[in-house]
Design a protein around this nucleic acid. Structure first.
Lengths: 191, 191
DNA sequence: TTGTTAGTGTGTCATTTGACACAGTTGTTG
DNA sequence: CAACAACTGTGTCAAATGACACACTAACAA
């Protein structure tokens, strides 16, 4: 069983036929560090399941500075939902920071899947709902915890992100400057 | 046609039979200022459509301070998705700050609705997806704009929130102290 | 009326932060 | 190798912020 099937099996009760059915819809690809999944101005026509790898999801603010929106660490799903589901040009870009293993689901196949029957429509809904719950929790974390607390949790829970993303990008992800993050790192160097 | 039906009609193509079908599932209630929709420790068993009214969605951090998660201004949906969809105790509370008109959908009726056919399952999915897109955008705004910019946009776009929420709660919503928000208000008093 | 509570306006002050500047390091390219 | 670009470490300094303190107001209960 591959990482994609394992993910589905753990979150939903699915038969082995169901798991085969899923595997038939996704295409497995291995890509090197630096691969662009999507870019600003493109319509994102796929959902990516990251089996393994660290990805940088970012855009540019009014001043033209790169702003990190998300640092993904598989296994998890990744796309620009607004671009994908409403067929709009994306405002963001997403690039691999490590060699990665991905499972790609195109919009055609996604539509076919969720129109097959109620079960798949509900699974899609549940995955989106779980993502929303995670984002709401993230918003809670951002508004209640300090930059330092969040950095230390990242070190603990997502070491691959710390190892593969630059200080600048991590600082941007945490909503601070690279100098301030440097001060935090220096202070916690023995921890 | 009521506010609920108008909301559904604008976001999805629905027949008048569909709109009647929806109205049969929701119950309209008018509640005074100070009404508790749900509280910490309760399982939230309904989705609320806010036709009119301002609501305060908050919880308490480790230090026991009230933290504002959201200030709702109808028309929009409101619930604790994690508590509602996974039947867990809520960590948050939600209270009306004005007299409000709500349409209530209980979990039983919600389940009946989304199991009726693919159409309703897709509509539920689309509403959740739109909420997710809105929250992702909110996270972008939080990480790219200053407190002052966000306050001024709130004044412009959501005057009812400014009029009905306390300075303390708005400051908490923006992620700052009431003193800092006061400085911003003083500076922009003529704008 | 008085007392009480919650919220707001405002000043002071220590701390934190961001902006800037610059040196050192690493990696890449010709 | 040399040149260059990108990133990181680090110091200085001005500005923004939070913490604290206290007066003032409004709402409400006794």
């Amino acid at each position: 069983m591959n990482a994609l099937q394992l993910f589905f099996k753990e979150s939903h009760q699915l038969s082995s036929d169901d798991l085969t059915f899923i595997a038939d819809h996704f295409e497995k690809v291995s890509v090197p560090k630096g691969t662009v999944l999507f870019e600003q101005g493109e319509v994102v026509d796929s959902v990516y399941f990251i089996a393994e790898g660290v990805l940088h999801h970012y855009n540019f603010n009014q001043e033209g500075e790169k702003v990190t929106l998300e640092l993904h660490d598989g296994p998890c799903f990744c796309t620009d939902l607004e671009s994908f589901s409403e067929v709009k040009k994306s405002k963001d870009a997403c690039v691999t920071l490590t060699d990665s293993t991905l499972y790609v689901l195109t919009k055609d196949k996604y539509d076919a899947l969720i129109n097959t029957n109620l079960k798949w429509a509900h699974i899609a809904k549940d995955i989106i709902a779980k993502t929303l719950i995670k984002m709401l929790d993230q918003l809670k974390v951002v508004s209640t915890k300090s930059i330092e607390q969040r950095y230390l949790e990242l070190v603990k829970n997502k070491p691959l992100i710390i190892q593969n993303a630059s200080v600048r990008d991590i600082a941007s992800y945490l909503g601070t400057s690279r100098e301030t993050l440097h001060r935090i790192r220096k202070k916690n160097i023995f921890a």
